[in-house]
Amino acid sequence: MLDDRARMEAAKKEKVEQILAEFQLQEEDLKKVMRRMQKEMDRGLRLETHEEASVKMLPTYVRSTPEGSEVGDFLSLDLGGTNFRVMLVKVGEGEEGQWSVKTKHQMYSIPEDAMTGTAEMLFDYISECISDFLDKHQMKHKKLPLGFTFSFPVRHEDIDKGILLNWTKGFKASGAEGNNVVGLLRDAIKRRGDFEMDVVAMVNDTVATMISCYYEDHQCEVGMIVGTGCNACYMEEMQNVELVEGDEGRMCVNTEWGAFGDSGELDEFLLEYDRLVDESSANPGQQLYEKLIGGKYMGELVRLVLLRLVDENLLFHGEASEQLRTRGAFETRFVSQVESDTGDRKQIYNILSTLGLRPSTTDCDIVRRACESVSTRAAHMCSAGLAGVINRMRESRSEDVMRITVGVDGSVYKLHPSFKERFHASVRRLTPSCEITFIESEEGSGRGAALVSAVACKKACMLGQ
């Protein structure tokens, strides 16, 4: 009897593995994704193909990295998701002549009506938060230079001027797309009239992360975010950046690689679950690469896999709870928690219980395998993109072996128990001629924006502006 049951459990697990095998990517698959990513990057950089390229390769006008001589107080704003952060950054000489960066910050959550109302409502709310922060720190009387981390696709015309191309991540505030974001912020500050600010720089969160990590390690020339969304930036040779005049030196390019796949480059790798996630998203047909990796989508992918296993009578005796059938019910943090389970399955059992399920031991094991399959594919897909960037940098610099540091931020990278190990191992397999160091950014977005502002202020002083 026991043997029969054991055989049935083994057969069930084997069927589960057959279904989950769809998520496995072979090294040849990853090399294919990497080569296609490089081709799209090239198209994004070139003037004649930029418009139709899915990977936009947006110039950021960040050319210099901090040298350690900029000092002063800077205000930093960070808008990239449902939370908005205001930070005071003091850049100065530390002990023994070292450079020191001290920060104080406060988080504000953005109400739904500000995210989806008008641009005026959104930026009025942001300036209200700045006003509140300055009151708390008794700094209303000071006109501070301000660095703005704005983590949406922007076409820069200068370091302090950028046109919002399109909202992502659930934002829909009308009247912002096609307009200068810094102008919208300046107008809102003017409307309030109770404080003055000098907006000197606007950067993407990947750029802010790279600059913040450069402060720790001067070989950091790539910034990457794996959180709600997924994106990367890197220092490109100016001669390859056709959208900006000049051939000397390097400029940081914001790849906006989340949109890779929007022209069909990933079609052969998309599964039924991916198509369902895409169809029910706020932007169907867009940001397809990001939807395979980002935390906004990972939990939902797992939920759809679990429903398939229920329908195949391989999980929960073929019956799903009402909660499990509800879109968004299986949160991405559950994926991390399930994979963090120590082996007694308590954590998995508790999560499934909150979803109205009474799982068996085998159910718990199957749910864990589903989570591992989805998150491992995410790590491997992400590795193909980064390997594409790094191999490109090595080739354009004609280096036999390139040493490089990548600064990384984002909740999936930082909080998932195995993502970074799987990701690092896969990147290294795909970049055999590179020695890569990964560092995690601390308060990256805010500190990085302030350091970019410090560079901009120093330049302005040198130019006598």
Score class of each variant (00 low, 15 high):
A425F: 03
G72T: 04
V16S: 14
A379M: 08
I439A: 11
D409V: 06
A425L: 01
R191M: 14
S131A: 11
R327D: 15
F334Q: 08
S69A: 10
R447P: 13
R308G: 06
G388A: 12
K143L: 09
V62N: 02
A450S: 10
F152I: 12
S375R: 01
E245A: 13
V455S: 13
D113A: 13
V89S: 05
G183A: 07
S375H: 03
V62C: 14
V89W: 03
G170S: 13
E93R: 11
L314C: 10
E14P: 09
D198A: 07
R345W: 12
V182N: 03
N313M: 06
T65W: 13
C382K: 01
S336W: 07
G175E: 11
T209A: 12
C252M: 02
N283V: 07
R63Y: 12
L164Y: 11
L352W: 03
P145T: 04
L58F: 11
G183M: 11
K346C: 08
K102F: 13
L25S: 04
L266K: 01
L352Y: 03
G178W: 06
G147E: 05
M8L: 11
G285W: 01
Q18G: 08
V302I: 15
S340V: 08
E372G: 10
D262V: 12
L276W: 15
A454R: 15
Y413W: 08
T82H: 04
L88S: 12
Q98P: 11
T361P: 11
V199Y: 10
C220Q: 00
F148W: 11
S263C: 15
C213F: 02
V154W: 11
F148L: 12
D278L: 02
I225G: 02
G410A: 04
S398C: 09
N83Y: 09
N180C: 15
Q239A: 08
M197I: 08
V374Q: 01
G444C: 07
E157G: 12
I163A: 12
R325E: 13
C457S: 14
Y125T: 02
R5T: 14
G410S: 03
S281F: 03
C457G: 13
S411F: 14
L47H: 04
T255A: 10
S426Y: 01
V241I: 09
S375C: 12
L357D: 08
P153I: 04
C252Q: 01
D135N: 13
R397I: 04
H141G: 12
N180F: 12
E17W: 04
E279L: 12
G258W: 03
G318D: 12
D262A: 15
G249W: 02
K39R: 09
T376R: 09
T437V: 14
K39C: 09
E279I: 14
D132P: 00
A53P: 01
M393G: 02
L165D: 15
F438V: 04
G175I: 14
K140A: 13
R36I: 07
V427W: 00
G299Q: 01
K102V: 07
G261N: 00
L165W: 13
I189M: 13
D311H: 06
T149H: 09
K136I: 09
V335G: 02
F171K: 09
D3S: 11
S54L: 07
K190A: 13
D311F: 08
D363Q: 00
I390Y: 00
E443W: 04
A201V: 11
G170T: 14
G444H: 09
H156I: 04
H317W: 09
G170I: 14
E279P: 03
M235S: 03
Y108T: 01
G227P: 00
H137L: 09
I390D: 00
S383Q: 00
I163V: 15
R345A: 14
R192F: 03
E9S: 13
N283E: 09
E339I: 05
N166G: 14
M87I: 05
I126S: 00
V338E: 00
D124W: 03
L25T: 04
K172V: 08
K190F: 13
Q26V: 12
G385T: 08
T149E: 12
M298W: 15
A460C: 14
V408E: 08
Q287T: 07
T116P: 03
F74L: 09
T405P: 03
G410E: 02
V199S: 14
V182R: 14
R46Q: 05
H424G: 09
G68K: 09
K102H: 03
G81P: 15
P359D: 00
L243K: 12
D198P: 12
V182Q: 05
Q24Y: 03
L386T: 14
Q98R: 08
L122N: 05
Q323D: 12
Q26S: 11
M202N: 08
V389Y: 05
V389R: 01
R250E: 01
F419H: 00
L25Y: 08
E22Y: 07
N204V: 04
I436Q: 00
Q239D: 10
K31P: 02
G356V: 02
I351N: 04
G299A: 10
S263P: 05
R36E: 03
G258D: 09
P284K: 14
V253Y: 00
G294K: 04
K458W: 05
P432Q: 05
M34I: 02
E245C: 10
R85Q: 14
L243T: 06
G117V: 02
D160W: 04
K172I: 09
R36S: 05
R368K: 04
S426T: 04
E221M: 08
M115Y: 09
F334A: 10
L58Y: 15
Y108H: 03
R397A: 13
S336K: 03
M202T: 04
E372P: 00
K15F: 09
A201G: 12
G444M: 05
V200D: 10
K104W: 08
D205W: 05
F74A: 11
E40C: 02
K13N: 05
T228F: 09
T255N: 04
R394N: 09
T206C: 12
D42L: 14
C213K: 01
S373R: 09
K31E: 15
R377Q: 00
S54D: 14
A21M: 08
H141C: 11
I366W: 13
I19T: 14
D135H: 05
K12V: 14
G407K: 05
E440T: 07
K12L: 12
P432W: 08
A232F: 07
A329Y: 04
P284L: 05
A232L: 13
T60K: 00
E196G: 07
V305I: 15
W257P: 00
E120W: 07
V89N: 07
V154S: 14
Q98H: 03
K32G: 10
I436W: 00
D3Q: 04
D73L: 06
S76N: 11
G258Y: 01
G183T: 08
L185H: 11
V310M: 09
S54E: 09
A387Q: 02
V91E: 07
A53L: 00
G227W: 02
Y234R: 02
C230A: 12
S360E: 13
H105W: 10
E48D: 12
E265H: 01
A456R: 11
A259R: 11
L386E: 00
R327S: 14
G410I: 02
S76P: 05
G68Y: 10
L144N: 00
Y234H: 10
Y349C: 11
A208V: 06
M121D: 13
G183F: 12
P153R: 11
M402R: 07
A114N: 07
R192G: 04
K104T: 13
S321F: 08
S151L: 06
A320M: 06
A119H: 05
R43Y: 03
V154N: 06
D113M: 07
S127V: 09
D124M: 03
S383P: 01
V338D: 00
P59F: 03
K56F: 03
G356N: 08
V367P: 00
E40S: 06
G388S: 11
G162D: 12
E272F: 09
G294F: 01
K13T: 15
S360Q: 07
T354H: 05
N204A: 04
D217P: 06
L304V: 09
V89R: 01
V452G: 09
N391V: 11
R186K: 11
T228K: 11
L20S: 00
L266A: 03
S383M: 01
N240G: 07
S383G: 14
G246C: 06
E48K: 10
A188L: 02
G446I: 13
I126V: 06
K56S: 09
K296M: 13
L25E: 00
S54G: 10
V16A: 05
D344E: 06
T118L: 02
S441H: 06
Q24L: 04
M381S: 01
I351A: 07
S453P: 11
A387Y: 00
T362P: 04
G299L: 00
S281A: 05
D113Q: 14
L165M: 12
R325W: 05
